[in-house]
Amino acid sequence: MDTDRAFWGKAVAESTGFTLAPDHPDAANREDDTRTIERILPADLTRALRTETRRRLGLALYPVLCGPLYQALAQMAGGNKAVLSHRMTGRCTLGALDVTESVGNFAVHFPLPLATDHLDADDLCRAVAAQLASVPHAGASYDWFGKTLGDSAYPDDCLTPLRVNYLGVLPPDEHGVFRFAREHHNQRLAPPEQIRSAELELHLAVSDDRLSLRLSYAQARWDAARLEALIDDYLRRLEALAKTPDA
């Protein structure tokens, strides 16, 4: 456990200096004020990221998607580092206790900082993969020790406004006699007056062979043009990564 505490203490310390505040911080962050910005990557670029880019970098798709996002977020914040909150299953083995196949929701959000200067796009994706591989106990220990690291260290939104969640490859919208509304994928059922669980939530998914991006936010707190600029910058970086030829 000392190793876990040290890991999260280091992550919190390295997050210092990254700030990205809402445009209207005094406004409420309510569910009924949620708006969404959505973009869809063309099939050819999605295919390139999922095949050629992954093969060139030797990585899973998730760190490939996160590398350019760290860059875009650092650019938006006007610095040389960014902090993202990642969502993982939180299922892990603790000595004789194994919850990897237990019924229940063990999901956890945890922050990971990353310096974006002095790294090209390829190396940044590799750095993300290395960071994720080093996370102890599938991120669950951030919930265990976060509160012991100070009021400014826990929960994750103390360190970054942006949570990212890769949903994987979604099933077809139509299955036999059933049709699933794509806009309802991974949507919460919450009272309208409830406070949103995060400032910004970015959901990534592959559907119909195309990568979709859905950024949700409270319109009273964030200017849409600012967030659209972030997403468009992210897409440009993803496209450049997808078009980088093999060495």
Results as ranks from 00 to 15, higher is better:
1 M>A: 15
6 A>Y: 09
7 F>S: 05
7 F>L: 09
10 K>H: 12
11 A>Q: 14
17 G>C: 12
18 F>A: 14
21 A>Q: 13
23 D>S: 07
26 D>R: 08
33 D>A: 15
37 I>K: 05
38 E>V: 15
46 T>G: 04
47 R>G: 04
49 L>H: 02
50 R>E: 12
51 T>N: 15
54 R>S: 08
58 G>R: 07
60 A>G: 09
63 P>T: 13
65 L>D: 04
75 Q>A: 14
80 N>P: 05
84 L>T: 06
87 R>N: 02
88 M>N: 14
92 C>H: 15
93 T>N: 02
99 V>S: 06
101 E>L: 09
102 S>V: 11
102 S>D: 12
119 L>Q: 13
124 L>Q: 11
128 V>H: 10
131 Q>S: 10
135 V>M: 07
138 A>H: 12
140 A>N: 08
140 A>L: 15
142 Y>A: 11
149 L>G: 12
149 L>C: 10
152 S>T: 15
161 P>K: 09
167 L>D: 03
170 L>M: 14
170 L>G: 07
174 E>M: 05
174 E>D: 04
174 E>S: 13
178 F>V: 10
181 A>Y: 01
184 H>W: 06
184 H>G: 00
185 H>S: 04
189 L>C: 08
191 P>L: 02
197 S>H: 11
199 E>P: 01
200 L>M: 06
200 L>Y: 07
204 L>P: 08
204 L>V: 03
213 L>F: 15
223 D>Y: 00
224 A>C: 08
227 L>F: 07
229 A>T: 14
240 A>R: 07
241 L>F: 06
242 A>M: 00
242 A>C: 01
